[in-house]
Design a binder for these strands. Structure first.
Lengths: 222, 222
DNA sequence: GTCTATACGCAGATAGAC
DNA sequence: GTCTATCTGCGTATAGAC
């Protein structure tokens, strides 16, 4: 692993734990095992380091989602797998930052900060949600065609709603002590499916879960 | 308006715009029209100022919600009014921070930061969500009794889901450029109601909206 | 209650040796 | 590529006069 990559890894970890402002280059350098000025050989400044870090997170996030729906075909399973892939991703981040999966990591805050500070990150965020939106919309279209999903719900709106819901689960889970998405995701998904499906009982598919979150790296570029 | 109150107002504004770390006491003092050391006469330190500010926001938030359901009776209207009261609240904050309602303010980030830093704020957040949860649960119970709301959805779970959804709408709206909760709230609510109701067409109630967000103060304690 | 003056620390960043 | 030494700026906070 190159020094550059080590710096990026340590940066991601620190940005996630402390946020941009409370992350200091001295700490990152110490974790990598170098001195602060050496960082400046690899990166122009803190801002560049931040942008590179956030970009890596997004690349990895998109990989998680697209991998999750490769080997399933029903809309029920695809939506569930997307949901699960996001949970896995967050669990992995929790593991990386060392909070033992106890609660989702503060991804949203980092994105929001980045969005307001750098146009490039705003665009990267939009690209990610555009991807998620078109992916989920295709699943819904398919589900409506197969009569798995209710046709009286507008597909554009339903897509945005599903994305919002999932974001909301993570958000609430990270601020409200009595709500734990890791405990409840199965009932949350079942309940959601009940609302959007035409079937009285969904046909429960059997599919492979990713085995052990701890062993999964953050993405191809890592 | 006392100097102390002016300081609190300016603090809330700055914390919302810049976050805790990037808010400087010099700026707050300048906006109030005093010098930095004078702040220390009214507050022990920056932390105390932060806690007081966040607490004011929560008191105000709870007032908005509880006021919104005072004069309506159906579960359809009550849920809609809660949703609308949160939108109004966020619009008012947007107005205060001066972004012209263009997007929701960064409330969630501030809460998350505060929660991790101070036990007191964690408890205050939990108290708020406990209040919201019990309020919405009562509405759902009533709706299920009146046959307005589906009985095959678990009321505990549905309550947490509705809260998550609303949080998610605000979250997504503040990071994804193509999603605007202020534009879409009516369709979002209609679609949500379609999913949780037993009726094919909801009886649309007529109720008073708060007239002009710009004229509403942030709460009784302000 | 509010001020001027100031202490102190730590951040990001650069110069230049090796 | 990495280091030591150092610059510069801004933050919170305090002392003490008025």
């Amino acid at each position: 692993m190159s020094t550059r990559d080590k710096i990026i890894d340590a940066s991601i970890k620190n940005f996630l734990i402390f946020g941009y402002d409370n992350t200091s280059l001295s700490t990152i350098a110490a974790e990598v095992g170098i001195k602060k000025p050496s960082i400046y050989y690899h990166f122009k400044n803190k801002e560049e380091l931040f942008i590179v870090s956030v970009n890596h997170i997004f690349d990895s996030l998109e990989n998680y989602v697209s991998d999750s729906i490769k080997n399933v075909s029903s809309s029920y399973e695809m939506l569930e797998n997307i949901f699960l892939s996001l949970i896995d991703f967050n669990k992995n981040l929790s593991y990386i930052v060392g909070n033992n999966h106890s609660e989702p990591v503060n991804l949203y805050n980092l994105f929001h900060f980045g969005k307001n500070k750098y146009v490039y990150i705003r665009e990267r965020i939009d690209k990610y949600y555009n991807y998620l939106r078109s992916t989920i919309m295709d699943i819904i279209k398919m589900g409506q065609k197969n009569k798995e999903i209710r046709k009286d719900l507008d597909k554009e709106l339903l897509t945005l709603q599903i994305i919002s819901w999932i974001e909301g689960f993570f958000a609430l889970s990270s601020i409200y002590s009595y709500f734990d998405i890791y405990d409840m995701y199965q009932s949350l998904y079942d309940n959601m499916w009940k609302m959007i499906t035409t079937q009285t009982k969904p046909k429960k598919g059997f599919f492979n879960r990713k085995a052990n979150p701890k062993t999964i790296s953050l993405g191809t570029k890592w």
